[in-house]
Amino acid sequence: MTALVPAAPAFDPRLRVSDGVRRWRNLKSGLVSALCVLGAVVVVTPLALVFGYLVFKGAGSLNWDFFTKTPAPVGETGGGIAHAIGGTFLLIGMASLVGIPVGVLGAIYLTEYARPAFAARVRFAADVLNGVPSIVWGIVAYGIFVLPGGSPLSLGKFSALAGAATLAFIMIPLIVRTAEEVLLLVPNGYREAGLALGIAKWKISLHIVAKTAFRGILTGVLLAVARISGETAPLLFTALGNNDWGRGLGEPIAALPLQIYAYAISPYDDWHRQAWAAALVLLLVVLTMNLSLRFLTRERIVKVARRQLPTDVPPAAPVAQAHAG
């Protein structure tokens, strides 16, 4: 035991720790470690449960027709949710087209250009918006985009456009906040270095600062996309849902969450089964998007990490090499 204590020239016996105290400390250390492990398990368990239960309930109803056909008439079994998968991708695509650039550029504006007082207000507004329940988004969007005469932007009917616009509005504050956080983490030294090279500020913001924060921004974007993929309430009031392929962006459109909702509250067993399967598909869609985007941007980072290793681990070695040559 005493071997653990470094051999100091004159060890003050008052610093000696009794075995009892040491045991108590080890116990505390073990306890805290165990709590951390428990926390990690509690985090992972729901994902496993959700996924496992959806596979258990829904996998049996998955077949080729499910992905390629539209619903069968009431009373007949079979049919699929191709229209809802397509509708979800369309809604996410349109919302992302607006929400991602606006959110990311807004965050760049806040960190790189805005006065701190103004940035603080926008940050507060974004936080409030992120706390707005989705049913509230839905009813407001209904009033603005759907209700005839509700606003100059109203189409007067349920439509894919109204749904996508609502999802975009939900995305923007989410992306602004996460992107802003990671942009603030970019050290000021990079901005100064860029400016000292006589590079225009907007180029530094885009090519250096945003590029450095790219991974974090991507994570924020993925979270926002995942969030809107599952939104149901705002779509109930805007996109409405559709039992077939929609006839255009100005018409009601199906989406996976809406389809799940419609099937789940229906009285038919076959639709209940399809609701489980659709939920599984929705989860897989989000998971696939997440994993594939991470995979696409992964390689470069892994390479960087691997290259950094030799110099990061023993910092003295490369220095010696550098001056030997």
Partner: peptide, 15 residues
């Protein structure tokens, strides 16, 4: 700044 360059205390190559 294009005519007057600058080197900083902390080296800051773009990562």
């Amino acid at each position: 700044r294009r005519r007057v360059g600058m080197i900083f205390q902390k080296s800051n190559p773009f990562p």
